[in-house]
Design a protein around this nucleic acid. Sequence first.
DNA 1: CTCAGTGTTCAGTG
DNA 2: TCACTGAACACTGA
Length: 277
Amino acid sequence: MPELPEVERARCLAASVAERRVIDRVRCADDRIVIEGVTPPTLTRKLVGRRVLAVRRHGKHLWFELDRPPMPLFHLGMTGAFHIPDGEHLPLQSSIDPGEQWPPRFWKIQIEFSDGGQLAMTNARRFGRIRLRECPEHEPPIDQLGFDPLLDLPSTRSLIQQISTRRASLKGLLLDQSFAAGVGNWIADEVLYQAGLDPRRKADSLTTEEIAELRRVLGRVIRTAVRVNADKSRFPKSWLFHVRWNQNTQNPTLDGESVQFLRVAGRTTAWIPSRQH
DNA sequence: CTCAGTGTTCAGTG
DNA sequence: TCACTGAACACTGA
């Protein structure tokens, strides 16, 4: 699930149970792929007793700012999510299906807080990672990332500089986390569709006006998705998003225009040839 | 049974 | 060395 808006939703969920609380108890799954660079017992020992000051995010990475390092850093991979027990109060919608068991299937870490609140991270497909960092923002992988389009969208001027030297396809550029952190496959397609740009266009072929429009659309798509808490059913009806999953159905259309599928930069790409040039 | 897949990394290429 | 591409990764669900 996780592109920037879904990771932001996970951040809010985690913040609602973790911030200002002390970590009382941790259970780590015995998974040396997801739990990377640290053994589960060590991870547990480093977290227990710490107070969570804030839950922060850059791109698709999220981490706990604790009262003392090291800090746990999470990446959800393709299938990761955060969960809280059914019935626990929340200002936002619950992230779990009602009636789901606790702990949730495929849990990798469970954290219990001083006030009784609980948080779990799941990861069925094991592309996610849990790591420890002394200072997450100033170490890899976060210090390798480009701008976060929600937290600090660059000026058009700065974007022109960044884009004009790149020869990758627009699709490839948008997916490059060292360019724009948090953009994934569906957001890249949505942005290129709304900006009217062919996903195969080379980045350095864009005009100033096209870059300005790309910037505007990128900011708008991300803010809109975050505003509705990454709830797909609340994305605007006009979005390509709603038809991009219908690859199997014959002749998907949007506004009467035909949706096509391509492979660009190694990823399935949905686009509307009559609207993107 | 086969295959695609919302992500990242790494080997290979130009 | 750099920028970029495509395969590999691990596993579920269609």
